[in-house]
Each structure stands twice: as structure tokens, then as C-alpha cells.
């Protein structure tokens, strides 16, 4: 089981993160103190949540560029609901966020499944539309901290066993989706659809429907993250998490998820997100201007995709007997 969880690609990334932490620890031992690592994890949790959803979408040969806009729209809606009805229990807010995110994901899914529109076009379009809708419903105004109820803001910070709820949400998602991807029909269908859509059809797997569910799951996670984001930072406006979709795709690519579909794992997505999270949190510590972050994550994407491509290079048919299993 452990072996299946950590294929060599993930082990490599884990090693890279360990080396990174080691290098930082050489000069700033405080960075690897458990409390600080926990705070890095907590800070990276939204990215982990979104990266898991994005991974499922990418597995099915699609891409979801609307996740950050979905997050922002859902966040704004729940923030406005909270302002209008401060008494509404947080559980209900979470349910609303997940439901709305799911619905937005379904919009993407339906357009891809039923109208067969290329996913990049669909999600480019819905991305701008979702952002525009935020402006329409909020009239361009911010929802600020003092307008939100205390309970609304407290949820992601509430600590259980020393870890905030935000971290627990990410941990829960990792566990749930590890099971979903490895042991449910939908999870395995996602791999099959991305790996060989033609063969998937022969196997009785509906390619379009599987893609629809992938977008739906991605939307659900984006919705949940929308509430967590807005309540954690205690502010909602049109541009929150602007450009975050690229970080999410970056986390997936770094995590070894093949953009061509069919290859990837929850563990990879999580490690890819953590890699970016460690870098982001380490920059101020090691006294590098935060302006470096963009270029570093860009380079990480390029290096990661080049390494993955080397590992997955198409081998052609193996005909020579001596070559079988030798590679």
C-alpha cells in the first residue's frame, strides 16, 4: 500500500522538499520548528484543496482555469449571506459554499460534456464570467472584517489537537480523495479516461460524464476553499485569489500530474502544493524579496514538466525480447 502511495516520482519530490527544508534549516533552524512547519502547512492548505480538484480534472485530459474565480465568487456570496444573516450557523454556510461551488463546477462540466467545447475555452470563459458576476452582485464593494460575524471568521482558526480547522479540512480532503481516486469506480474511471479515452469507451466508461464529475469535484473543493479563504483573511472583493489558478496548475505539474492525462496522484498534487508553499513561506525568512516568488514558481513549473516528460517519454512498442522489462 505504501509503495502504491509513493511511486518514485513522489519520493523524488518529497526528497526535493526535504533538501529544500534542510538548506533553509542550515541558516534558519527556526523555519523547521514543528510550529512553523504547521503554519506553513496551514498557509498552503487552500492550495492543497484546489490542487486535488485540479488533479482530477487534469487526469481526465481537461484543465480548469476557473477554480480561483469560482473560489472568489463563492467566497463573496457566503460573505454577503453572512452580512445579511449573521445568525446563520457556520455549518450551513459551509454547505452553501460547497453547493454553490459544485454548481459552478457543473456548469463547466456540462459545457465540456454535452457541447464538447474544449475545456480551456470553457474555463477561460467562465473564469471571466464568474469574476464579472462578483462585481455585479457586490457592486464592486468589499466585504470587510468588521461586517462578518465572529463565528464566520472563527471556523478556519478553531484548533483541534493544535491544528487549525483549515489544516484539518486539507487533511480530510487528502484522505477522502486518496480513497476516492484509488478505490472507487469514479476515481479509476478518471485514470482510464485520461490514459486512453478510446479504450475507456470500449470498457463502458463514459468519457464525457467522467469529465463532468471531475469538474464537479473541482468546483466543490473550490467552493469549500472559497469560504475558508474569505473567512481566514476576513475580507471578500472581486480580485481575491487573482491568478491563483496558475499556482494550482503549477502545483499539479510540479506534483507530476501529466497534462496529457492519465498520470498523477493525490500525493503528487499535495507535495507539489507543499513545494510551492515552502518556497513562498521561506522567501521572507531567507531575506529574498517576495517579488522573486513568481519567477521561482515559473521556473519550478518548467523544470518539473521537463523532468516528468523525460520520465514518461513514449517508449514505442517493445519488440526486442531483450528490451522487455529491461527499462
Amino acid at each position: 500500500m505504501l509503495q502504491r502511495l509513493l511511486t518514485s516520482r513522489e519520493a523524488l519530490l518529497l526528497g526535493a522538499i526535504a533538501v529544500l527544508l534542510g538548506l533553509i534549516a542550515l541558516r534558519f533552524p527556526g523555519f523547521v520548528a514543528p510550529a512553523n512547519l504547521a503554519s506553513v502547512f496551514n498557509d498552503t492548505s487552500p492550495l492543497i484543496l484546489l490542487a486535488i480538484g485540479q488533479m482530477i480534472v487534469i487526469l481526465t485530459k481537461c484543465i480548469d482555469l476557473s477554480v480561483a474565480a469560482n473560489l472568489a465568487l463563492t467566497g463573496m456570496v457566503v460573505a454577503m449571506i453572512n452580512v445579511a444573516a449573521p445568525g446563520l450557523p457556520v455549518v450551513l454556510i459551509v454547505v452553501i459554499a460547497i453547493t454553490l461551488g459544485t454548481a459552478l463546477g457543473m456548469v463547466n462540466g456540462v459545457l465540456v460534456w454535452k457541447l464538447d467545447i474544449p475545456p480551456i475555452v470553457v474555463t477561460l470563459g467562465t473564469m471571466t464570467i464568474f469574476r464579472g458576476i462578483i462585481f455585479l452582485i457586490s457592486d464592486g464593494k468589499w466585504v470587510n472584517s468588521h461586517e462578518m460575524s465572529a463565528a464566520f471568521k472563527a471556523f478556519p482558526r478553531a484548533e483541534i489537537l493544535g491544528l487549525p480547522m483549515l489544516s484539518w479540512c486539507a487533511i480530510l480532503a487528502v484522505i477522502v480523495f486518496t480513497v476516492v481516486m484509488s478505490r472507487t469506480t469514479l476515481g479509476r474511471a478518471a485514470y482510464a479516461v485520461g490514459g486512453n479515452p478510446h479504450a475507456a469507451t470500449y470498457t463502458g466508461i463514459n468519457v464525457g460524464r467522467t469529465q463532468f464529475w471531475a469538474f464537479t469535484l473541482s468546483g466543490a473543493l473550490a467552493g469549500l476553499t472559497g469560504y475558508l479563504w474569505v473567512s481566514r483573511y476576513a475580507v471578500a472583493y472581486v480580485d481575491i485569489a487573482g491568478g491563483f489558478e496558475l499556482d494550482v496548475v503549477a502545483a499539479c505539474v510540479i506534483g507530476g500530474i501529466s497534462i496529457a492525462g492519465g498520470i498523477g496522484s493525490v500525493g503528487g498534487a499535495v507535495l507539489g502544493a507543499l513545494f510551492l508553499g515552502v518556497i513562498k513561506n521561506a522567501l521572507p525568512v531567507v531575506n529574498i524579496s517576495p517579488f522573486w516568488q513568481l519567477a521561482i514558481s515559473g521556473s519550478a513549473i518548467i523544470i518539473a514538466v521537463a523532468l516528468n516528460a523525460r520520465a514518461n517519454r513514449e517508449k514505442g512498442r517493445i519488440i526486442l525480447k531483450s528490451a522487455e522489462h529491461a527499462t
Partner: peptide, 26 residues
């Protein structure tokens, strides 16, 4: 040359190129 998918490559260079601008200009 490396046979990488252009969508990923250019998402990467999208961050890289603008990132260099940020490093230079802040």
C-alpha cells in the same frame, strides 16, 4: 526540442517572464 506541451510551458514562462520583471522593478 524537449517535446513539452505548450500550454504548460507557457503557463510556466508566463510566471517566469513577469516574475523577472517583478525582480527587476519590484
Amino acid at each position: 526540442r524537449l517535446g513539452l506541451p505548450s500550454i504548460v510551458v507557457t503557463i510556466g514562462t508566463m510566471s517566469l517572464f513577469r516574475g523577472i520583471s517583478y525582480i527587476v522593478l519590484g
